[in-house]
């Protein structure tokens, strides 16, 4: 006969698997929705797009594998090079928004009556839709009734058909895009200027720095984070310059104002386009261009973290 002995061994408190791993798991749980959506709507389509670019597919019927034929055709396609060149123009000229925004911000960074009103007026173009910006500039450029030609007409210069001339059209659209983009950079710099250390400015002033030297050696270094963000959003803005082109010229005249994203849309999704494979090939090229910038941004952010 045995009696139940009192338990003498140490019994750890009953703990579930969840309790044990809680700390390790919970960040992942919080991240899960984000990761899931990112994987499903961003990562997966990237690979899908690579895959589709090797097929001849109208989006409805059977897809036929054609290897690199789409890329071969891209290589011989004049319209592709026009779009690529325009994309580069956009990338370079759009960066003008950064110095533009900086100077407006410096100008507005003062305390006078009604400065809030002026600031909001300068910021206004970023608030209105890109479509409205496009329409306003289309009317502004109108060769017959537009304000631009009325103005230069008073100086005796002939009418310029900005949006109908293949030499000016891209510059005309970029200028329209710069209007809201400059406002955006301005707001970034305005917040940046609030964080500038007044003591450093004071010290520099005692040392006799002023004007351009003050700006270059004292103010700008402190604005570096703002400049970085302005650079990032401007590059992104330049690469997705789709809506302005669509509303202002529809890619014309004869395709001279297209950029890669617009060309992709035309080939794959527009009224006359049913070539998913070819569109995907363009998308892949655009992705590779973006990849350069993404890599650069990630790298510089990584550097930032390390030095901290």
């Amino acid at each position: 006969m045995t009696t139940a002995l009192p338990q003498t061994e140490y019994d750890p408190p009953k703990s579930s698997w969840w309790r044990r791993n809680q700390i390790g798991i919970s960040p992942w749980l919080f991240l899960a929705p984000g990761i899931l959506f990112f994987a499903f709507y961003v990562i997966f389509p990237i690979f899908q797009s690579f895959n589709v670019s090797f097929y001849d597919w109208d989006g409805l019927g059977d897809a036929e594998f054609v290897g690199v034929e789409n890329y071969q055709e891209l290589y011989w396609d004049d319209a592709f090079y026009t779009s690529l060149w325009n994309n580069l123009l956009w990338l370079v000229l759009y960066l003008l928004a950064i110095p533009g925004g900086l100077f407006i911000a410096l100008f507005l960074n003062q305390t006078v009556t009604g400065i809030r009103l002026y600031k909001s007026l300068f910021f206004f173009p970023f608030v209105i839709s890109q479509v409205v910006v496009g329409l306003v500039f289309t009317w502004f450029y109108d060769p017959t009734f537009g304000l631009l030609n009325s103005i230069i007409g008073t100086f005796g210069m002939g009418p310029i058909n900005v949006l109908g001339d293949e030499n000016y059209v891209t510059y005309g659209i970029i200028l329209a895009g710069l209007w809201p983009q400059t406002a955006y950079c301005m707001i970034l710099y305005l917040t940046g200027l609030n964080a500038v250390d007044p003591e450093q400015v004071e010290a520099a002033r005692l040392d006799g720095a002023k004007g351009a030297r003050m700006l270059w050696y004292v103010i700008l270094p402190q604005l570096k984070p703002a400049t970085f963000i302005a650079f990032v959003v401007t590059i992104i803005g330049a690469l997705r310059s789709f809506d302005l082109i669509s509303i202002m010229t529809n890619g014309g005249p004869f395709g001279e104002s297209r950029v890669l994203s617009f060309y992709m849309f035309e080939v794959a999704l527009s009224e006359y386009g049913f070539r998913m494979g070819y569109g995907a090939a363009i998308a892949v090229v655009l992705f590779l261009i973006m990849l350069i910038f993404i890599a650069y941004f990630l790298w510089s952010m990584y550097q930032e973290e390390r030095t901290r």
């Binding site: 109908g164 293949e166 014309g252 005249p253 004869f254 395709g255 035309e266 009224e271 006359y272 386009g273 049913f274 070539r275």
Partner: peptide, 17 residues
């Protein structure tokens, strides 16, 4: 066909200019 129409109409526009 749609693709030919698109390419040709772009050509017509270019020709007119």
């Amino acid at each position: 066909p749609a693709e030919m129409a698109k390419a040709a109409m772009e050509g017509f526009q270019e020709f007119m200019v």
